[in-house]
């Protein structure tokens, strides 16, 4: 057996496994997305881009895009801001860190469905503790997840509460791994805390922030559990995310063709977005290194 053949034999199992668990489902879902595929109907005729066009004409799909986009922007902003603040605080408290860090990570360990049910109780309009405290402060009760205006904000509060510890943990790990020399040089040069933070900490944390942004964006795009339990996408479609939309289309209506098209419509821009973002960060790093 030649070296080339031996190398091929060694790679083959990985290729086969990848083909089975990654490539086949992708190709299959693409083939389903161009057919009228409902498991209750025996025939699954080819309809070209029918499912895709139908989706792009559906205002509920755009509503789901808007909700998901809002969630990505709002969650990333608040989770990064809060996560970084808490991470910096814990960095300054090396002794207390061992106690506070595990406690702060508890929300992340709570199952999303439990978070949903907990939210239902905590934000209950008439007897929930949040409104109770608002009343104690002399404020009016709010309708929270029952209000068309506040439902998404309620979801965001729950999700930011759950995911900020994750962001904090990753950023803290990143901060702890940063080299000390640039800080010492900056101090010698007379830089203040803010300058050190902006010109040393943030640039050196960029790869970690990139990782967090990508991981969180992917998770937010896939999320539907809290909404499923708390609002079922309502009131109306105010909290209908793309994945909840795809789930309802695929597993409630059994319109697998349209659900697959929705999944592809989510995946294409996401892949582009992630690629561009990674390229952008790599470019930034190269510029920093050149400096």
């Amino acid at each position: 057996m030649t070296v080339k053949k031996r190398a091929l034999m060694l790679v083959l199992p990985t290729v086969v496994v990848l083909a089975l668990i990654v490539i086949f489902p992708l190709v299959f879902s693409l083939s389903v997305s161009v057919r009228a595929y409902d498991i209750r109907i025996p025939e699954h005729p080819f309809i070209g881009f029918g499912n895709w066009i139908s989706l792009l004409k559906n205002p509920d799909f755009y509503s789901a895009v808007l909700v998901t986009g809002t969630m990505i922007l709002a969650e990333l902003f608040f989770e990064l801001l809060l996560g970084l603040c808490v991470a910096l605080l814990l960095l300054q408290l090396p002794r207390s860190r061992k106690i506070f860090q595990p406690i702060l990570l508890i929300p992340m360990m709570v199952m999303p469905v439990v978070v949903g049910y907990m939210g239902r109780l905590v934000f209950e309009v008439r007897s929930g503790p949040i409104n109770y405290f608002l009343n104690m402060l002399g404020l009016e009760s709010l309708c929270w997840h029952a209000s068309p205006d506040l439902a998404l904000i309620t979801i965001l509060i729950l999700r930011i509460w759950r995911w900020t510890p994750f962001v904090m943990a990753v950023l803290l790990a990143g901060l702890l791994s940063l080299p000390m020399e640039p800080y010492q040089s900056a101090q010698v040069d007379g830089a203040n805390i803010w300058q050190i933070f902006i010109h040393i900490t943030i640039p050196m944390l960029k790869p970690i922030i990139t990782l967090v942004v990508i991981m969180r964006s992917l998770e937010i795009l896939q999320t539907f559990d809290i909404m499923y339990v708390l609002t079922m996408g309502g009131p109306g479609a105010k909290t209908m995310t793309l994945s909840l939309y795809a789930y309802i289309t695929g597993f409630r209506y059994w319109d697998i063709g349209q659900a697959s098209a929705a999944a592809w419509l989510i995946m294409i821009p996401l892949s582009i977005m992630v690629t561009l973002f990674v390229k952008m960060m790599e470019k930034g790093e190269k510029i920093e290194q050149a400096k």
Binding site: V125, C143, W144, H145, A146, P148, G234, P235
Partner: peptide, 8 residues
């Protein structure tokens, strides 16, 4: 109707 009835 009571406030919050849209989530009942």
């Amino acid at each position: 109707s009571p406030p919050g009835v849209l989530s009942w």
